[in-house]
Every structure is written in C-alpha cells, then in structure tokens.
Amino acid sequence: MSAKTKIVVLHTKEVIYTVLFVVLAIVLAVLLFLMFGKDKKTTSFSGSPAKYHAGIYKSPITLDNNTFDVEVTVDEHEITSISMTNLSEATTAMYPLMEPALESLANQIYATQSTKDLTYAEENKYTSMLLLDAINSALKKARAD
C-alpha cells in the first residue's frame, strides 16, 4: 500500500483576497436585486377617477409681516410633495419649529394620503395647525370635483 500524499499549499493572502471578492460579489448581487428587482408597490389607478388636478399648488402664510408659501405637489391620484417656499432666514430663526412640524405632517400625509386624524406634538400644536390649514387650502385648489 502506497500512500500518495498530496500537499496543498495555500497562501494566506490569496485566501483572504478570494473570500473578500466573494463577499463583495454577494453584496453587489443583493444590491442589484434590490435596485432592479420587481417593485413591491404595485398600485393600479387605471379606471379610478382622478382625485386631483396634477400640478403644484401654493397657499400663503403670513407671520409678523413675513409671507411664505406652503407648496403641495400632486399627481392625479396622490400627494407627492409638501414643502415651504420663500421662507426667509428671519422667519426660520423666529419660528424654528416650522420645518420640523411640516416634515412630521408631510410624512403622515404621504403615508395616509389624507389630512385627517394626524398627530402632532404638544409643543408643535399651533404651528402644526397653521401648516395643516395651509395644506388643506392648497389641496382644496387641487381637488378634481
């Protein structure tokens, strides 16, 4: 019986590089799948009547002789964007809760596509109510009745 012994020499550096490239390839494959895979959000609006006239609608707010606009962007079936325009630095400094309050309201509106039953923090109550009135006013202009 002769034993044919085979000796395999592995260089540590080559093994590490190989493992690293395999991990990077797996990560790349997962990222490509997530980016170009089927979209899970499949909403079909075909056949349903338009809820809004697509466009950008503004509603002005005046605070201490400073006027800025709440801008609501809609397509035919949903609210796509809510932002403030023409907001001066003085207004931002005097009313620092405006932007966080609008962001909180906008996130809730995007999720529910409604301005009803929104929640806001007690310290943002009046700011949120002011912004919500402006958003509702802009949406009133956009409604397709």
Rank of each mutant, 00 (worst) to 15 (best):
M1L: 10
S2K: 09
S2L: 11
K4T: 09
T5L: 14
K6F: 14
I7E: 06
V8Q: 05
V9I: 11
T12F: 13
I16M: 04
T18R: 07
V19I: 10
V23I: 12
V23E: 05
A25T: 10
I26K: 05
L28C: 12
V30F: 05
V30Y: 03
F33R: 15
L34A: 07
G37V: 04
G37Q: 07
K41D: 15
S44C: 06
F45N: 11
A50I: 01
A50H: 04
A50N: 04
A54N: 02
A54L: 02
I56D: 15
S59Q: 15
I61T: 07
N65K: 08
N65E: 05
N66W: 00
D69C: 07
E71N: 10
V74G: 04
D75P: 00
E76L: 04
E78D: 08
I79H: 02
S83A: 13
M84G: 00
T85V: 08
E89N: 07
E89W: 05
Y95R: 12
Y95C: 09
M98G: 14
M98K: 13
P100K: 06
L102F: 01
S104L: 09
L105G: 00
N107C: 02
N107S: 11
A111I: 04
Q113E: 00
T115A: 00
K116A: 13
K116E: 15
D117K: 06
L118S: 05
T119A: 13
T119R: 12
A121Y: 09
A121D: 14
E122F: 06
E122A: 10
E123I: 11
K125Y: 11
D133H: 10
A134F: 09
N136G: 10
N136Q: 12
A138L: 12
L139R: 12
K141H: 15
R143T: 12
A144V: 06
A144R: 12
D145R: 09
